[in-house]
Nucleic acid binder design. Structure first.
Length: 843
RNA sequence: GCGGGUGUGGCGGAAUGGUAGACGCCGGGGACUUAAAAUCCCCUGAGCUUUGCUCGUGCGGGUUCGAGUCCCGCCACCCGCACCA
């Protein structure tokens, strides 16, 4: 035999080069084979590959390699989601151009990915900041514009009044700007929107057909789209105006004790001449625009003195301006029913408004006092005149019917989903290809002038939008009149870049965003893998974008991703000093049972296991790990132990165990003996059976993305093979193991295959070899173990031939000493018999 | 606040309503070695009056011959909330 140790530092690079030179993973769209498009969410080039990326791409890689073994033509591409805020922050902090920073990050990260040995088709690589890519995106934007799917309106942003700049939600910390520290305000700007709400019904209905998506993601999207049936009606106001409101709970209308309107509602605005009202409206502008902030902020109201006439009772309800009502949702006005809505309850408690019960568990509890919280649940209607005794459902229908008959309201469908605001007042994004003409308003940039490229000479010294401040870039001429005009200086939300990149991976013509026929060959993506944090926004936007392109006749698919998998995070223990500062894993060591700082021996507290993050310093660099243990050990670790949808805690012991297993397999592979004979012993048969069972089980596990289970199967077969004496079965088991681990540990598998496997006549790369065949006759066992219970408690187990009759097995069970003892001389009253599993005697 | 999820030994986890803890890690004992590393073997949920018995899957109830799994009510933690990607 040759070496005794597998040396990844030599083998990894050798096989990575071999795959590159052979073009092993280049996808051929003209292949006759069935097509398989395996895609992981492409990375943002932040600087370094982190363990989360490694886990994500390892899972996709195993699938891609497995599919190839199964005879598919596999498309497994990689690219870069290259626009975004971090590049602009780097520009401000490090005085480096965002493009330069991004490009050098891409270069570094690509080299890292190559060292992990991923089976990627690098010929299709692109970055979304390439003018070719965003130029095609601008064309798609104009297609949608011309199809009426784009419009412009006023919308609120977070405004930093000191830096005079728009802030992302992430840049608002506790209501203050992250750099200036100033109190953030809401400010209205003209912004571009995509009409995703036009597709609300279709996006919702489409979820039903996504059988291979996790239920939880479909549920989250369903709730996000938020279809609700309700009543829209108008209150008559004491000042003579009408106040349209929308409610999903018309059944509780007799419990209404006030109305609340948004600060920018016309009724509120009409009162703003009063200093008090103006001051309150100003107060409502404080704070940012996030839902969490709005929902948790203290409920504030201002009594306008106006009253609204209740449509049934005629009661005069006070009308408040309230900070928790949004102009963007519904009509910007609500009826307040404090008894059965928590937000209304808090508001009514604060402003001492009546809290009436109109829903109870039973009519007899109509006078039961309200507790300290609203009761939003189901029940029967009480204290509500003609609705008394009805179910919530019936009462809703009844009120809507009456409103429609009497002509003061109508039942409507309302969606929680809002149109997609795509304007960003930032530099590092796709320029919106619009020219604002003094005579013709917004005009599309002519197609032959695309791409509208970003200017290179850019000033990041002052806050605000660099495109807006650039001395010449925005100055152009109107395509219609030729008169001086201004370019749109907003760029597109980076989510637009990731809404169609998978199409560009499948097809990359120069003169168009994609080729329809080529797309039809590959789409939909067979497996799409990424973090659950994208469950709603990215996935919904990509579904929308695909549908929009289908509607305007450019695509034949509606759903881009046939199967979705959301993987868990990579986590690590945290280490902190007494002063609360964090230490990284390589700054600490164990002193007996305690952790101490390596530098000065100071005591360290080992804290909770949380997602790896720079701020907590609990990160482990994949490069260093690969240098120490090799790519296969890291890949194996990423697949072992934790189910892929759950978090994976990184551990030093774990990676060392994986590296040991790589060597253990290597030792076993060296014992490959094509000339071994002998099939007769029971042990040989048992091993052959295990190997054939593993071929089927590992395939099933990989197809179900149960990588941790596949890993456990491989451990079991490895252990059994090691223990076996040389035989033809053992040789078969070793060869089987080489194939089974090849998607997961491709470098080790190639090395073993080239050195030992070729002795058995296997030529070429194992990456090109097929998945092993199994013998169905060897899948079944000929003996089964049956648990014997007395009153549901296991008292014994019996081993019986597989074909035994129920009578025979029950007789064997009855003869068991333990069973006799536990029956205590009594005859079983009943016997539960589960074939090949269990017998339960009930006395 | 709203929406979604998760909870099983010291740790990661396995288990079509049918033998809870497969497989791995850690730990303990032993073999080999001048020694170490590596490797191999055995043990490893808790408790007890130990041929065996009792308890045990976040907590409290329920359904069932039988519940980690199904139902009801809680608790804790994690993710998302529309300008982070």
């Amino acid at each position: 035999m040759t070496d005794t140790r597998f040396d990844p530092s030599k083998a990894d690079g050798r096989w990575q080069r071999a795959w590159d030179e052979a073009g092993t993973f280049i996808a051929d769209s003209n292949s006759e084979k069935p097509k398989s498009f395996i895609l992981e969410m492409f990375p943002y080039p932040s600087g370094r590959i982190h363990m989360g990326h490694v886990r994500n791409y390892t899972m996709g890689d195993v699938l891609a390699r497995y599919k190839k073994m199964r005879g598919c033509e596999v498309l497994h591409p990689m690219g870069w989601d290259a626009f975004g805020m971090p590049a602009e922050n780097a520009a401000m902090e490090k005085k480096v151009h965002p493009g330069e920073w991004t490009r050098s990050n891409i270069e570094a990260m690509k080299a890292q990915l190559k060292r992990i040995g991923f089976a990627l088709d690098w010929t299709r690589e692109f970055a979304t900041c390439d003018p070719e890519y965003y130029g095609h995106e601008q064309a798609l934007f104009l297609d949608m514009y011309e199809a009426g799917l784009v419009y412009r309106r006023q919308s609120e942003v977070n405004w930093d009044p000191v830096d005079m700049t728009v802030l992302a939600n992430e840049q608002v910390i506790d209501g203050k700007g992250w750099r200036s520290g100033a109190e953030v305000e809401k400010r209205k700007l003209d912004q571009w929107f995509l009409k995703i709400t036009d597709f609300a019904e279709d996006l919702l209905a489409g979820l039903d057909e996504l059988e291979d998506w996790p239920d939880k993601v479909k549920l989250m999207q369903e709730n996000w789209i938020g279809k609700s049936q309700g009543l829209e009606f108008s209150f008559e106001l004491s000042n003579g105006d009408k106040l349209p409101v929308y409610t999903t709970r018309p059944d509780t209308i007799f419990g209404a004790s006030f109305c609340a309107i948004a600060a920018d509602h016309p009724v509120a605005q009409s009162l703003s001449e009063s200093a008090d009202v103006a001051a309150f409206i100003e107060e409502c502008k404080k704070g940012g625009t996030t839902a969490a902030e709005l929902e948790t902020a203290e409920k504030l109201g201002f009594d306008t003195g106006i009253t609204a006439r209740h449509p049934f009772t005629g009661a005069a309800l006070p009308v408040f301006i309230a900070n928790f009502v949004l102009m963007d949702y519904g009509t910007g006005a609500v009826m307040g029913v404090p008894g059965h809505d928590q937000r209304d309850f808090e508001f009514a408690t604060k402003y001492k408004l009546p809290i009436a019960r109109v829903v109870a568990r039973d009519v007899s509890e109509a006078d039961a006092p309200m507790g300290t919280e609203a009761e939003p649940g189901d029940g029967v209607i009480v204290n509500s005149d003609f609705l008394d005794g009805m179910s919530v459902e019936d009462a809703k229908a009844d009120v809507i019917a009456r409103a429609e008959k009497e002509g003061w309201g109508e039942g409507t469908t309302v969606w929680r989903l809002r149109d997609w605001g795509i304007s960003r007042q930032r530099y590092w994004g796709t320029p919106i290809p619009i020219i604002h003409s003094p005579d013709h308003g917004p005009v599309p940039v002519p197609r032959d002038q695309l791409p509208v490229t970003l200017p290179e000479d850019i000033d990041f010294e002052t806050p605000g939008n660099p495109l807006e401040r650039h001395p010449t870039w925005k100055h152009t001429t109107c395509p219609i009149s030729g008169k001086p005009a201004l370019r749109e200086t907003d760029t597109l939300d980076t989510f637009t870049n990731s809404s169609w990149y998978f199409l560009r991976f499948a097809s990359q013509p120069e003169d168009a965003p994609f080729d329809r026929q080529e797309i039809a060959k590959w789409l939909p993506v067979e497996h799409y893998i990424g973090g659950v944090e994208h469950a709603i926004l990215h996935l919904l936007y990509a579904r929308f974008w695909t549908r929009a392109l289908a509607r305007i006749g450019q695509l034949d698919v509606k759903e881009p991703f046939a199967a979705l998998f959301t993987q868990g995070m990579v986590t690590h223990e945290t280490y902190s000093l007494g002063d609360g500062s964090w230490l990284s894993p390589d700054e600490v060591t164990k002193d007996g049972a305690d952790w101490i700082a390596i530098e000065d021996g100071a005591p360290v507290t080992a804290g909770r296991v949380v997602k790896m993050s720079k701020s907590k310093k609990n990160v482990v660099d994949p490069d260093a790990i690969i240098a120490d243990y090799g790519a296969d050990a890291v890949r194996w670790f990423m697949l072992s132990d934790s189910p892929p949808e759950r978090d994976l805690p990184w551990s030093q012991d774990g990676i060392e165990g994986c590296a040991r297993f790589v060597q253990r397999l290597w030792r076993l592979f060296q014992q490959y003996d094509p000339d071994a004979t002998g099939e007769d012993s029971a042990q040989d048969k048992a091993l052959a059976r295990k190997a054939h069972q593993a071929i089927v089980a590992v395939a099933e596990d990989i197809e179900a993305l149960g990588f941790n289970k596949a890993v456990a199967r491989i451990y079991e077969l490895t252990g059994a093979t090691e223990k076996a004496a040389p035989s033809a079965s053992r040789t078969f088991a070793i060869r089987t193991l080489m194939s089974l681990v090849s998607p997961m540990m491709p470098h080790l598998a190639e090395e073993a295959h080239s050195r030992f496997g070729s002795a058995a006549g296997n030529e070429g790369l194992i990456a090109d070899a097929p998945w092993p065949e199994h013998d169905p006759a060897l899948l079944v066992e000929d003996e089964v173990t049956i648990a014997v219970q007395v009153m549901g408690k296991v008292r014994d187990t019996i081993k019986v031939p597989k074909g035994n009759t129920q009578e025979a097995n029950v007789a064997i069970a009855m003869a068991s000493k333990n069973v006799i003892q536990n029956l205590g001389g009594k005859e079983p009253k009943r016997t539960i018999y589960v074939p090949e599993r269990l017998i339960n005697f009930v006395v």
